[in-house]
Each structure stands twice: as C-alpha cells, then as structure tokens.
Design a protein around this nucleic acid. Structure first.
Lengths: 225, 225
DNA sequence: ACCTGAACACCGTTCAAGT
DNA sequence: ACCTGAACACCGTTCAAGT
C-alpha cells in the first residue's frame, strides 16, 4: 500500500510525464479517430510533444506498441460470470463483449489475426472453458470446443471489422450493403443460386445478431456432446 | 477455341513478357519463400528484371497486388461436390481445403482479415450454402449458418497461420508448443484452472484435427435446426 | 534514467522520358 | 501500349548528444 502510494505520487507529479500507459492511450486515440495508417511514430511523438526516439524508451517497437493497444482494449472485455446465470448466457455475454470491443476498435481485429494472442485473450479463453465445463462438456472435448468457440468469436468479429473498415467513414452502411446485394442478385443463376437467394437478406441483416446466431449454433452443437 | 489459341500464341511469343499473372505468380513465390515483409515493389521488379514502375501498368497498387495473390491461392481450393457424398463430408472437404491452402500460404490468412472477401470466397460461400440446403436447413436459417461456417473456417485457419508465422522457420513446432504448455502449467491455479487443465493437451494436439472438430461442432448444431 | 532530433536505410507511388 | 528508373514523400528505427 505505501509503496503504491509513493509510486502514484511520483507518477502524478507531472501530469504529462511519458509512460507506456500514456503512449498506448494516445496510440488508441489515433487508431480510433484516424485509422491504422495514421499511427506513425512521428504522429505519436507530435501528439505527445516529444521526440520519436523517446517512445522507444518505453516501447520496444511498433509491433510491441500494437500488441499493447490490442491488449488494452481486450482487457476491458468483461468475463466475470453473473451468479445464477446459465452458462449459455455467460458465453453469449462474452461473445458480445468481444464483438462490441472489435466493432468499436476495428483495428483490433486486424491485429488479432496478425499477432499471437495477447494476454487478455487467455482470460477470455479461461472464462469460456469454465462455462463449457459448467455445461457438462466431457473433459476430452473441452479443449477443442473452447478453442473453436473463441476462434469463432475472434475470427468473425475480426472479419466484421474488416468490412467496417472498408466502408468509407461517411457513407451509409445500408446503402453499401444494398449495392453488394444488387451485385449478388445479378450473378449467374446457374453458378450462384444460393448467393442469389440470400442476397435479399444481406441488405437488412444485422451483423451482431448474425454473429450471435453463429454462437448459438455452436452451443447447440456443444449440447449434443 | 480459335481466339483462345491465338491469344495463347501471342502471350507465348515472349516467355518473359510482363503480365498480371506473371507478377502475381512471382509475388506468391516471394511471399512463400521470404515472407510478407520481403514483398516490395523493388524486390518484385528485380526478380522480374524490369523497373518498379512497370508493375504499376498491370496492377493498381500493393493492395490490389495482395488481393490478386490471395484470390489466386483460394481459387485453387476445390469446392465441387463429389457425387453421392453426404453434405457433411463435402463441407468437411471444403473446410480442409481452406485450412491446407492457408497453412501452405500463411500470408493469405492475414490478408483475409484485412481486406474484403476476394471473389474466390464467394464461390466457397456458394458451395457451403448449397450443402446446407442439401442438409435440409430451413431457408430462414441458411444465411446465418453459411456465414457462421465460412467465417469460422477463414477465421481459424487465419489464426493458425498467425501462429505458424510466429514460430521461427527453423524451430521445432512441438518444442515451441511445449514451451507454451509449460507457461500455461505455471499459471495461478485459482485464476486459470481451465487453462492449466488443457495445458497437457496443448503440446500434443493437431491443429488440423482441432479445426475439423470445430467444423463438426458446427455441423452438430446445424443438425438441430 | 530519460529525452531530443537528426540521420539512416528503407518503403510505395508517380511521372517524364523513352521504345 | 508498355517499360524505365530517378525522384518524391514518406516510413520505422537508431544513436550520439543532451538533461
């Protein structure tokens, strides 16, 4: 307790003192407001009113910086089980937490499929695994099931983010989907009957609900184990 | 037929004539043998014995080039249904085709979670959708189920590729997994009981089999619809 | 211990000039 | 129509020099 207070005092002496937390925080700001391409060590050091080399005292390199920003965002995903709630509900809540986090910070999606799991992912994996145990999944199948579920969550949320990044910031989402749906409807009926059939659903579908439908499909499969 | 032959003749007149196909082919070679960071317009133009600007005559920019390489690899994934084979088997075959393609070309995984679906993905989506129809999935649920399945396939295969890229080319895979498993086993038992439990399975698990186990979990869920 | 900022070795992309 | 290659406007990273 005492050393903690001492450290806090020293850190707070100068509100603008450089630290890894402040660097990560500012990097997230840039990523959120201006996109991945805007995050350069020059832009970052300009915002932090310091030299570009100063950042390297706190961060190993750009890869390390991006890993830290990703971990920071994912660390806020709540995984604590609500007492009394059925395991399925807990898993759905975790899934939506990941979806919303990546939806709010699309660059996290790209990062997750480039780098290894940040430490925050292990916490999520642990939570999902415990809920599967609560569901009565046989021990032999728990590892595969947890891996599949978490991979699905991260993979799909990431792809949604890729699509989100595609749509120009100003443009209307439904208008964009309408254009794609129109393209699908124009495909060769002999070669793409299924795509043409679902084209009508594309424009009005909700990514979040569709993501959750996939989780439920998984849970239905898990229930058969 | 005749115009095809004529075009082939003209293309073959100079074996080293620059074309988008030859550029994409060479780019894939570089990506496979030297990794993503080695693919530069300078390296590419050196291999093609031309100026870097010449490539821009055939390709819009680097994003376009990467999209073309990804599409080229995915186009080779076989989706044609084997006559008589049950739909589940056909879906498993498609899934393994994607897994193996990304396993052989890990950079495809990163690309898929950064860019929108290349045209080859639509063919895969169509095939999966048709197999789901053959399984008797109600029409209302087909879109969600096909999206979930394809997203899972691409997402997981991509994450496996990210891990593969992590392990240094020379190092032993099982030795690497052993190190991670040892780390997991050392985690706080109070906070990470599940992770500790599956640590023993980590070292000896097969990514491909685990990927397929996830597909089967999905299919079991689909069967309940 | 931490910060500065010029310098280095690269990039992707453009474009006048060639054939 | 297609290719050349120098030039431009950037990058991430390093490092001697400062405080």
């Amino acid at each position: 307790m005492v050393p903690m207070a001492t450290r806090a005092q020293r850190t707070d002496r100068r509100a603008d003192a450089l630290s890894k937390e402040r660097i990560v925080e500012t990097a997230i700001e840039i990523l959120d407001t201006e996109g991945e391409s805007a995050l350069t060590f020059r832009a970052l050091s300009a915002r932090l009113a310091t030299g570009s080399g100063a950042i390297y005292w706190h961060v190993a390199n750009k890869e390390d910086l991006l890993a830290a920003t990703t971990d920071d965002v994912l660390a806020r995903v709540v995984t604590g089980e609500v007492t009394g709630a059925p395991p399925q509900e807990a898993i759905r809540a975790i899934a939506l937490g990941i979806f919303d986090a990546i939806d709010a910070h699309p660059w996290v999606g790209a990062q997750l499929s480039r780098a290894p799991w940040p430490s925050a992912m292990l916490r999520i994996f642990e939570s999902v695994g415990r809920q599967l145990q609560a569901l009565g999944v046989p021990e032999r199948a728990q590892f595969d099931a947890a891996t599949a579920l978490v991979s699905y969550m991260v993979g799909v949320a990431g792809q949604n983010a890729a699509n989100a990044r595609r749509v120009a910031p100003g443009t209307d989402r439904s208008a964009f989907l309408g254009t794609v749906a129109a393209q699908w409807a124009r495909l060769d009926p002999a070669r793409y009957p299924f795509v043409r059939q679902v084209a009508t659903q594309l424009a009005e579908h909700d990514d979040r609900a569709q993501f959750l439908a996939g989780v439920d499909l998984f849970l239905a499969g898990v229930a058969t184990l």
